[in-house]
Design a protein around this nucleic acid. Structure first.
Lengths: 230, 230
DNA sequence: GGAAAGTCTTGACACTCGTCAAGACGGGTG
DNA sequence: CACCCGTCTTGACGAGTGTCAAGACTTTCC
């Protein structure tokens, strides 16, 4: 069994809480495979299948059996690696976050002029709008679920804050490069950019081929307006 | 039966398509009750129960039986007045829209100075954030569903456009009163305000008592920045 | 080798879902 | 009165849901 490794209260299998399991050394003597455990790998694998299914069908229409069918396992295994549906989706949301928040870090680090930063940011913004559209609509779906389902709230709020910081890093660096300061705080700035992105996503998924271009134009136009006039 | 009144193709009951039924005169000779029909009233009544249920539970967790339980009828009657679940929810979305788009019209019409307009707009914005929070989260939920379910797309897009026009009326009038012009088009303006409102809604529903105040502050701060500098 | 532990499948459970058909009820009209 | 028609309830159907237990298969350990 997996359950008796670390948790005594949890009645079920290896849980999310023991993501920090790397501390308890596995008793395998040598290290033919990385000791980070196959469990984490399986869980990641199943979470990937879940993310794929969720981003295609949306939260309301996604069932555990459908997720399992998008993996190479049967539906029972999901309850071996996750306590229940909420636990699985929470895990998915965390994985989504990890792949998201570093998207613009390269641009922020390398840009030497405000124009270069803006151009790099807009390019990546438009790219992810068309390339990762299903994933983004899933994020908005799950964030909305958190307004109804308190079980999701904490994880969703944490991710939203990390996205807020991501936007803040971009805009405050942009302001720095222009020698000015942002007009508002991180929350409002994020809300503005997120609103523009969400509207562009709606149009993108409706088949509007100009969605990405218009998003770039709008954000590019608004970016200077979000700085305090000198 | 209700079906044979106007539609021959529709296999079921009195449908949404015959909202314009007032043209075909009912064969009741006199007019003891308004000829606008009890049917439309019932449908409105059921839609109200559906809106209440949806705004409490969200799309994913709302069933027809639960809706019926929030009305004074049994679950079967829903299929007497609506073809199916999609038809019912579509009808609900339209009713929501009707009550929404006129919210700021009074302020826009009466305000004589930009400060008066801004102050009236921000007041009503904050009011509806706290008073109609469940309804607003439902709107965002359904708009997200339209990214997965094509059946919802057309109605949702139409409402989003009407909200866009609503915001445009406010901001363009605000610009007019200040003798300036909006920095961007209606779509981007709406996206910005909507993003701020959505973020405030998340905080409001999470119990943050400062959500409305912060929303008013942020929008009030951004409103002048969204006009072209003279 | 055999025993134990870990992993995965299968099949069932107790529900809930949307939909629909059969019929009950009630108020007008012949 | 009986009849009809619009309205509404009841109960069922098949399909799909999350969850879990029993066991089969695989790997690891002594």
């Amino acid at each position: 069994m997996l359950a008796n490794m670390a948790l005594q209260d949890e009645e079920a299998v290896g849980m999310t809480a023991l993501d920090t399991r790397a501390t308890t050394r596995p008793r395998r003597r040598a290290a033919d495979v990385p000791p980070v455990d196959k469990v984490a790998a399986r869980r990641s694998e199943l979470a990937a299948a879940a993310l794929k299914t969720l981003s295609e069908l949306g939260y309301a229409r996604t069932s555990l059996r459908e997720i399992a069918q998008n993996s190479e396992f049967s539906h029972g295994v999901l309850h071996y690696y996750f306590r229940d549906k909420v636990d699985l989706i929470t895990y998915c949301v965390r994985e989504y976050n990890a792949q998201c928040v570093t998207r613009y870090d390269g641009v922020v680090a390398t840009a030497a002029t405000p124009e270069e930063l803006a151009e790099g940011f807009l390019r990546k913004l438009g790219e992810t709008l068309v390339d990762d559209a299903p994933l983004h609509r899933l994020w908005y779906d799950l964030r909305n679920q958190s307004m109804f389902e308190p079980a999701f709230h904490d994880d969703v709020a944490a991710i939203d804050r990390s996205l807020e910081r991501m936007i803040w890093r971009i805009v405050s660096r942009y302001a720095e490069l222009t020698g000015r300061t942002p007009l508002t705080g991180p929350a409002a700035l994020y809300a503005v950019v997120d609103g523009l992105f969400q509207q562009a996503l709606l149009r993108q998924l409706a088949g509007d081929p100009a969605a990405a271009d218009d998003l770039r134009t709008a954000v590019g136009q608004l970016l200077p307006a979000l700085l305090r006039p000198t």
